[in-house]
Design a protein around this nucleic acid. Sequence first.
DNA 1: TAACCCATGTAACCTGTTACATGATTAA
DNA 2: TTAATCATGTAACAGGTTACATGGGTTA
Lengths: 182, 182
Amino acid sequence: MVLSYAILAALINQPCSGYDLVKRFNKSVDCFWSASHQQIYKALAKLEADQHLSSEKIEQLNRPTKKNYTVTDSGRQLLQRWIGEIEAISPIKSDLLIKLSVGHTVPTDTLIQTLQGYYSQHKEKLKSYQSIAKQYAQALELSRESQFQYLSLRAGIRQQLAWIAWCEEAMGFLGQPVAIRE
Amino acid sequence: MVLSYAILAALINQPCSGYDLVKRFNKSVDCFWSASHQQIYKALAKLEADQHLSSEKIEQLNRPTKKNYTVTDSGRQLLQRWIGEIEAISPIKSDLLIKLSVGHTVPTDTLIQTLQGYYSQHKEKLKSYQSIAKQYAQALELSRESQFQYLSLRAGIRQQLAWIAWCEEAMGFLGQPVAIRE
DNA sequence: TAACCCATGTAACCTGTTACATGATTAA
DNA sequence: TTAATCATGTAACAGGTTACATGGGTTA
């Protein structure tokens, strides 16, 4: 369900083919959702059948023909209505937190290595977000559209920073018992 | 898959029935995963069939008989191996960020109301986490087991704080254009 | 010549959600 | 007497993952 809205949001900014959408989704920040190509093609077909998207075949030299999707008025309205809805925030689902919560059942070294693995992934992700943020920051003037994208990106950065700070706290605790703060 | 590990983690600290597990999962911080009772009963049956759990029927006065589940050696080993594994961190999936990223397509008032709705939910969740944290902080001495649970809880608090700070940033932006920071 | 990119799909399977089902006990 | 709690499940469906399929063009 949310995937359909994520697709509408991506295409409303920039119409493109299914193949290109997949790439944009996997660049991971163009959009704040993720999906496999199988899912995306299926959702595109459904959205078109429901008249929320229209497609145009584009023939190319030396390349397969592709379908370019554009959001229809109906699709735009659907998206706009959805933006106004307030859903319940989804509960945390973190395998790392499950692991840590029963950390006393494994050797400390195991735990430190696992933590380190997650830690470096969050640092990587932060780096990639920050490099995109830099591109926004370097622009002299941002369109309102770009400002909103930048704002969403800022949330991603804050999330990664929170994880990184917590990993450091956890590693401090594993190194030596740490005072309880509130 | 992760659900099974979440169940093992919960039961290794405190054996209980499926019904009680559901309640613990929904208290939302005892565990950092969530699931419906249908899912949990099914996963419990599978874990028992695979010999990772053993159950004991407990007859009660004026109440239905319940099954008490305990983690077996095999279950404990399975959990311990899993704790040592480093999975890829899961990509952000946030409907709020999708909404914000195309914020230019709706009136600012709509956006502010939506943001406000998510904002207050995050504040609520933070409050509930903090009240649990207080219980840990008030204890004179925490077992190593409790210290690990407290540590996981700290991550939840940090996540909520990050969301809250970002919501405030976003509302500031919607009030008046805000300077771009890095 | 092997592997990868372009471009779009189908099919089987697993996970998760919603609805339905039962039946006794207890609190408002 | 209506609703909620205790306690455990089945069944249908939606969402998501993995594997399989095709076929020309480009890079190593």
